[in-house]
């Protein structure tokens, strides 16, 4: 850590910039400068990202949503909106509530995308409720993304490390990708006038931090991790006999977003 301290003293402003860019390779800690001489060291949330050159071609990440654990608090939605200043009425991630009665009627709602949580029970359901659960939704980071296929200018793309991202300085805002996404994960951001969507917090992952929705989830319903690491929670879940599925498999998009305990009513 000595050289880090020396770097801070040498050119504080430059150091801060570097830290925020996450470009100090070799450090196992994300170092946050503090007033005076001190600094905070934030441990890795995803083991194995820091401390070496990040090789995009060698990464494999997976996101697992555990339906059996989601409590519908909406923390993920709130954190996401704050992290990205998502304009009202548009959602990078949202949480749906499913209610199923004994006649197989399915009632789904998602007031304000789940931003306010689910504070009141539904009172408009006539039948006897059989089952009820929450389903968080976000970008599926497809292996074969429809949005990338249809983008006319190459402003949305799949990175070598498997993230589907948007080049906001290049997007023309034609909204074709929004039409093509089978999961309705995309929207046209009225501030930037470009397409926008969940990035699985690429900027956090590259710094060894979990996506912000995973980090704030109090119920551990959202899990993110490295599939190259056999000890990671996601590797273990995917290797277990749990029922793991993806959304709309018939679309042929092969999402990297898995759902644990997903019911057949969910689309």
């Amino acid at each position: 850590m000595k050289d880090v301290k020396a770097a801070i003293n040498k050119d504080r402003r430059e150091f801060v910039k570097k830290v925020l860019r996450g470009s100090i390779a070799g450090s196992l800690f994300l170092v946050l400068p503090m007033g005076g001489e001190g600094s905070i060291q934030i441990p890795e949330q995803i083991p194995g990202i820091r401390g070496k050159e990040y090789d995009m071609s060698k990464q494999r990440f997976a996101f697992i949503v555990d339906i059996t654990r989601c409590i519908g608090c909406g923390s993920c939605c709130v954190a996401d909106k704050r992290e990205y200043d998502v304009p009202d009425g548009h959602y990078r991630t949202w949480v749906e509530r499913y209610i199923k009665d004994f006649d197989d009627n399915v009632y789904v709602d998602c007031p304000n995308g789940g931003l306010d949580g689910y504070q009141k029970p539904r009172t408009d359901i006539p039948g006897k409720i059989r089952d009820t659960f929450f389903v968080p939704k976000l970008c599926n980071m497809c292996e074969r993304p429809s949005c990338v296929q249809v983008c006319p200018v190459g402003a949305t793309f799949k990175t070598p490390d498997g993230f589907v991202l948007i080049d906001k300085d290049y997007c023309v805002g034609c909204a074709y990708c929004i039409q093509a996404c089978p999961y309705s994960a995309r929207f046209l951001n009225p501030k930037t006038k470009t397409a926008d969507k969940c990035t699985w917090c690429y900027h956090r992952v590259r710094k060894g931090l979990l996506p912000v929705c995973v980090h704030v989830c109090p119920a551990k319903a959202r899990k993110f991790g490295d599939l190259n690491d056999p000890e990671s929670e996601v590797s273990k879940i995917l290797a277990s006999p749990e029922v793991i599925t993806v959304l709309k498999p018939d679309m042929g998009n092969h999402p990297a977003l898995y759902y644990k305990g997903l019911r057949r009513e969910v689309v």
Partner: peptide, 26 residues
């Protein structure tokens, strides 16, 4: 890397963090 601007990846990776972790408060 493909049919897009490679620089866009680094730009997204360098997006300033707003949330940290609980350790940042310690």
């Amino acid at each position: 890397y493909g049919h897009y601007r490679g620089a866009a990846i680094e730009k997204e990776a360098n997006r300033p963090l707003k949330h940290m972790t609980n350790y940042s408060c310690k």
